[in-house]
Design a protein around this nucleic acid. Structure first.
Lengths: 228, 228
DNA sequence: CGGCTGACTTGATGCGCATCAAGGCGCAAC
DNA sequence: GTTGCGCCTTGATGCGCATCAAGTCAGCCG
């Protein structure tokens, strides 16, 4: 049980698990299935029936939707140690509302839906943690809907960059884009061309410097003020 | 307690309340405050601290956000007997993430956050109902994000119209817009001008007929096929 | 080294929708 | 009636971003 106890240690501080008793954690781990994905491998497709949700341990996973014409909107970029697809927990006919695919080689754990539901029944604290988590997600969605509806592409790119810097950061600071630029583009709902042009414009204005996947913000405060 | 028992009857089938015991319902009702709004009156503003969530009994309420330039995106149009602002239940520092305003004269009930949280603790069935409800909302958000990111204004208008017709409807059918056209426009994220032009185009193509707030869909199936 | 490939950049063009600006039309006040 | 006011419609114009099309550059492999 070496691997399992390492996993248990990993989970100790995760919002979904930290309120569980030792026994409940063990019960959950007993049905957890480790999984390994190659870069570009698909984990599930939108509409697939779902009996599991996932925890990412390493690598990067994108959750996305495709338009009928084939253009892609990335709904979330998952990074360790995030969980995803928890929403299938509470659906009457559980199936994935988005597709999921590994961007890099990835390691993850699949948890059994029914087992977790059974545990939830015994732990109001975890219920409440789940609900708080869902609330935060809903807020994030509202922010995104507002941004898509009311703001232009430049704003969205700046907003995304600022999302990469720590809350309390100031002054100069370098961040690393979590994925290829075309992936970032699909995430902020612009074309790669527009993203490229926007970054160039920001860099011409002295607000940022771009070197491959490394973006250095010259002055976080100024960039924040810059979004209106 | 005449009014209260009428209210209790109203609530009997609402997802938030139907799993509660008689005693719990009474406890909740004891802290419920009826409220009446004039047309155009604001119920809360984005950022206001929140100790209550609401049930709409009559009228129509919009939940919206404003861009710094003053343009408005309506996030939800609330109709009886929907509840709203439940998300404040689970926030650490509870405050409204959107503004809320009555479109018509409206009657509603304000429920106390803390009281309901206390009841939730005792009712896993209600917890689960809340989580299922939040899951549906999240799905709806994803649909909206996808639509905003990948589809054009014509698609969004058609999609909205189709959302007004019953799931199993077919053939010809007349629906009533739930609000003024400019409100619908702010809801589907277009300008009133564009909404007007889109409706006219659809009507020129024989897909719909518009007479004030009454829109008759000539052939539901055809309109459904029409969205790609 | 040279040639290939895939990701990004840059430029030219066009379309969709917002914006600005007039009308039309219903409705209430008087 | 007529005046005024919202709301909606219609038209003219312009900008933002997608699209299409080269061109650049880095990495990789023969």
């Amino acid at each position: 049980m070496q691997a399992d106890s390492a996993l248990a240690r990993e989970l100790r501080h995760h919002y979904l698990f930290c309120a569980l008793t030792e026994a409940q954690q063990l019960r959950l781990l007993a049905t957890a299935v480790p999984r390994r994905l190659a870069a570009g491998e698909r984990l599930f497709s939108r509409g697939d029936s779902a009996a599991q949700f996932f925890l990412l341990r390493s690598g990067c996973v994108k959750l996305y939707r495709l338009s009928p014409e084939g253009s892609e909107k990335i709904m979330r970029l998952i990074r360790p140690p995030q969980t995803f697809a928890e929403s299938v927990l509470f659906m009457d006919v559980p199936c994935f509302p988005v597709s999921g695919e590994a961007l890099d080689a990835a390691e993850l754990i699949a948890f059994d839906r029914e087992t977790f539901l059974g545990i939830l029944r015994e732990s109001f604290a975890t219920c409440r943690a789940v609900m708080a988590h869902m609330t935060r997600r809903i807020q994030a969605h509202w922010d995104e809907i507002e941004t898509l509806a009311l703001e232009n592409s430049r704003y969205r790119v700046v907003h995304y960059l600022l999302g990469l810097v720590p809350r309390d950061a100031q002054g100069q600071l370098t961040v690393t884009l979590p994925a290829r630029k075309s992936v970032i583009a699909a995430h902020v709902a612009v074309t790669p061309e527009t993203l490229s042009r926007t970054l160039r414009a920001l860099s011409d204005e002295g607000l940022i410097e771009v070197a491959g996947e490394a973006v250095t913000v010259r002055d976080v405060e100024r960039l924040r003020r810059h979004m209106h």
